[in-house]
Every structure is written in structure tokens, then in C-alpha cells.
């Protein structure tokens, strides 16, 4: 089946229209495969080649990839949810209810968005610890680790701002508890909290503010840093393996790394 598929797909790639869209060229050659990456504005963030042993599941557990996957799911479901949502109190709650009761598959969309958001936070943490235990943050990847830490914070903020949007008791009090912590910042705590909520307590202003952050500012920030993150993987020598390290590091490394 795959051969048939390949044949037809090969034919498709030879067409003029396809070649006007994708600059990679046709055929199965190594060159063409390289170009498919290099000549694509998105894919060129990735390295052209990857060490064979790094695509093994055990090498990375695909945690970074999966995190990107949840981000993709969240963007798609998030856009669909935005079609049914007014960021105003208490209409936001009624909209959430209507998603459940009236919108076709509305409940499913919300479920997928919610659970993917939890999965993303979890995967980001898992990714971070995995990278640490593998030592993959070492030079020259220091800065990519920092980008990773920023992405962790962006992810937490995305999840936190999204938490308020259903405007139910769970959301309201979770955000109230969270924002109360902000007011503990010395000297300017209350100012920070006011800036965050657009008021002295969680109200319609806070909802609007969180909505803008959740749907506009933070996703753009995430995209920006994800792009840098991927680009740096490529520029810093691909996915980390022991052998991509300077000799100095290697000499004292133990023979086997169980983790």
C-alpha cells in the first residue's frame, strides 16, 4: 500500500502546482529531502539531519515534540472556542454552559482544550526534568535552556489566564488565590495585582484582561520563543548526545548513563 501511495504522491509532487508551492523539488534523493527542510519557512527551523539513535523513543521520550503537539491542539481548539465566547461577565459563564448544552461537540471541544492544557503543563515540566537529567542544557545549549525556562513560564501563564475564562466558582477563586499571592510582593505588591487584574479584585475587567493575554499576547509570545527554541536546537548541534560535547566534558563522564 505504501508503495502505491508513494507512487501517486510522487506523481503529485511533479505537478506544476505542487512545485509552485513547495520549493523542495521532486524525487527521493537525499538532496531533495534536505531541500524539503531547508526551503520551507517553518521546517527550516529544524535540522536537516538527525542522528539516527536520537529518533529512538528512549532517547528523548519525544517530550518536546509532544509539548509542541499539545500546543497545536490548544491553538486549534482555542480558536474554535473563541467563536462561541464573549469575554464579559456573566455572559462568559452562560457561553460555557451553552457550549455544553447547545453547541454541537462544544463540550468535546472544551474538554479537549482543558485536558490538553493540563497535559501541556505536565509535559513542559517533564521535558524540563528530562533535559536536565540528560545534561542536555550544557554548553553550547545554555541559552536554549533559558528559552526553555521562559517557555515554561509562558505555558504556566497561558494555563493560568485560561483558567479564569469559564467564569465559574472554580475559576474565580483559583484566580483570586493566585492573584492574592501577587500582592505579597514587597512594596509594589498591590500595584502588581492591580496591573494584573485591572482592578482591586477579580471582576469583569480581570476577565477581559486575562482573555486578551490568553488569546493574543501569550500565544504570540509562546510562538516566538518556540521558534527560537527550535532554531537553537538546530544551531547548537542538533539534539544532544554525549558525543556532541566537547572532549573536556567527556573525559570524566561515567561510562554508562542509566538515565
Amino acid at each position: 500500500m505504501s508503495t502505491t501511495f508513494n507512487r501517486y504522491f510522487g506523481e503529485l509532487r511533479k505537478t506544476r502546482i505542487w512545485r509552485s508551492v513547495f520549493r523542495g523539488g521532486t524525487g527521493q534523493s537525499t538532496l531533495r529531502n534536505s531541500m524539503a527542510i531547508q526551503q520551507n519557512v517553518f521546517l527550516h527551523l529544524l535540522p536537516t539531519k538527525v542522528r539516527t539513535r536520537m529518533i529512538d523513543f528512549n532517547a528523548t521520550w519525544y517530550l518536546g515534540t509532544l509539548t509542541l503537539g499539545t500546543f497545536g491542539i490548544l491553538v486549534i481548539t482555542g480558536i474554535l472556542l473563541m467563536l462561541y465566547y464573549h469575554p464579559s461577565a456573566p455572559q462568559a459563564y452562560a457561553d460555557t454552559k451553552d457550549l455544553q448544552f447547545v453547541v454541537s461537540s462544544g463540550q468535546f471541544l472544551r474538554n479537549l482544550h482543558r485536558w490538553s492544557a493540563h497535559a501541556m503543563v505536565f509535559l513542559v515540566f517533564a521535558h524540563m526534568f528530562r533535559v536536565f537529567y540528560r545534561g542536555a542544557y550544557r554548553p553550547p545549549r545554555e541559552f536554549n535552556w533559558v528559552i526553555g525556562v521562559i517557555l515554561l513560564l509562558v505555558t504556566l501563564l497561558l494555563s493560568y489566564t485560561g483558567y479564569l475564562l469559564p467564569w465559574d466558582q472554580l475559576a474565580f477563586w483559583a484566580i483570586t488565590v493566585g492573584s492574592n499571592i501577587a500582592s505579597a510582593v514587597p512594596i509594589m505588591g498591590d500595584k502588581v495585582r492591580f496591573l494584573m487584574l485591572g482592578g482591586h479584585f477579580v471582576n469583569a475587567n480581570a476577565l477581559l484582561r486575562f482573555y486578551v493575554l490568553h488569546c493574543m499576547i501569550l500565544p504570540l509570545a509562546a510562538l516566538f520563543f518556540i521558534a527560537i527554541h527550535f532554531w537553537r536546537i538546530r544551531k547548537d548541534g542538533g539534539l544532544y548526545t554525549r558525543h556532541s560535547e566537547p572532549d573536556a566534558v567527556m573525559t570524566t563522564a561515567p561510562a554508562e548513563r542509566p538515565l
Binding site: K97, V102, D168
Partner: peptide
């Protein structure tokens, strides 16, 4: 009243 399922319309739910 807004609910369209038996459980949500008649019973006590979290929401």
C-alpha cells in the same frame, strides 16, 4: 432550564 440533558436539567450537579 438551559440544560439539554436529563441529568443536568433535573439533578443537582457541580455547576
Amino acid at each position: 432550564g438551559t440544560a439539554t440533558s436529563v441529568e443536568d436539567a433535573h439533578k443537582s450537579t457541580l455547576a
